[in-house]
């Protein structure tokens, strides 16, 4: 199965990007092969609807589980329709979060924020 994580850098040791929709990259980790690849997030430059576009990229990459610190309502709608599970990250690197997820230490994310409508927070 595939796990996606929004990351600041293209490294497994990268910190988690606080924004899902506007993260520069997604780490896609395949637990069957233990292979990691990085996806440029083209949604980062969107004027609006970044969360929807980023979620679309996750769905298109056939990801099963997303680990993210937070996520907007629209992105959540796309992900849940596509049956992608969402877990809340903890402090630490992307690798540490993947390990924590595999050790069943992460909790499902169940709070979703409204869009920022172009007002970056």
């Amino acid at each position: 199965m595939k796990i996606a994580v929004p990351v600041d850098d293209k490294r497994l040791e990268s910190g988690i990007c606080p924004s899902f929709g506007r993260t520069p990259y997604f780490l896609i980790f395949n637990t069957d092969t233990n292979e990691a690849c990085f996806l440029d997030n083209s949604a980062a430059a969107s004027q609006g609807g970044a969360g929807i576009k980023a979620a679309q990229a996750i769905v298109d990459a056939e990801v099963n589980t997303l680990l993210t610190p937070r996520c907007g309502e629209n992105a959540e709608e796309v992900l849940s329709k596509a049956e992608v599970l969402i877990y809340k990250t903890i402090s630490g690197t992307a690798q540490q979060n993947i390990d924590a997820y595999r050790a069943e230490q992460l909790l499902p994310l169940n709070e979703f924020h409204k869009g920022f409508h172009g007002h970056e927070k």
Partner: peptide
């Protein structure tokens, strides 16, 4: 980005 494509069909996000 007001449309998403899930399970082979488009969805409209009316607020976007």
């Amino acid at each position: 980005n007001a449309l998403a494509f899930i399970k082979n069909r488009p969805y409209v996000f009316e607020d976007v």
